[in-house]
Simulated assay, not measured.
Amino acid sequence: MKTTPITSSLAALSLVIPVSVQAHPGHEHSSFFSGLLHPITGVDHLIMLLAFGALAFFAVKKTTTQLSLLAVALVALVTGMVAGLNLGEVSGIEGAIAASLLVVSAALWQVFSGSQVVTRMAVALCVALIFCHGYAHGVEATGSVSQFAVAMAISASALMLLGHRLAAFASSRWVSAGVASASLVYLLVA
């Protein structure tokens, strides 16, 4: 596998980022309003959802396929929440959420390399990591979980669509550098 400067840098930086990043403390998981706000105020979710929307835009040419990718990611998020609610805490979820920010950054870089096989694998890995974002919410859910889940799905959809639309104005592999920079700042101060 050919390494690029960005993948080498991300691999090195992943060694210094704390695995115990707590992405969710201080957020209520019990009402419609908190469900709407959390993807926006949870910086890890904000970065991941906007970046995944951009990734869907860059990864495939056909708009219907791009929107299908966003729908699949949304299903993964909600399925993860249901799994977390029913299965409970699993070690490594917070680490997977932290890693998701670096993975989506690398995927955005990769999408411009021309290798469709690697791009498909990167997109699939990002969807799996979005499942982890949902899983963490399921574990922490209290109160009106269904209201929180519906509102979170609405907000997550809006953010992915926003990232998708913004990508049309910034069609460059350097978008990944911006996502990686925002992610690293967040992970280092979280």
Rank of each mutant, 00 (worst) to 15 (best):
A71D: 12
M48F: 14
A56S: 15
L77N: 09
L125K: 05
L85N: 09
S183Y: 07
I6F: 00
S155I: 04
G163Q: 06
T7F: 02
V185D: 03
S176M: 05
L13N: 04
H45F: 04
V21I: 06
S20E: 14
S68Q: 14
V111N: 09
S20T: 14
G26Q: 07
V189A: 14
A158Q: 03
S8N: 00
V72L: 15
F131D: 04
F32A: 12
S30F: 03
G114V: 01
A83Q: 00
F52Y: 14
L50I: 07
A71R: 15
S9Y: 07
R173N: 04
W109Q: 07
A190T: 08
R120C: 02
L67Q: 05
H133W: 02
L87G: 09
A12C: 01
V60Y: 09
H45S: 09
V72I: 15
A122C: 10
A170G: 02
C132V: 00
C132S: 12
R173C: 02
T64S: 15
I154D: 04
F112A: 02
V103E: 02
L74R: 01
S157Y: 09
L85C: 09
H45Y: 10
L87M: 14
S8M: 02
L46P: 11
D44G: 13
S157G: 13
A128S: 14
M160Q: 14
V75N: 08
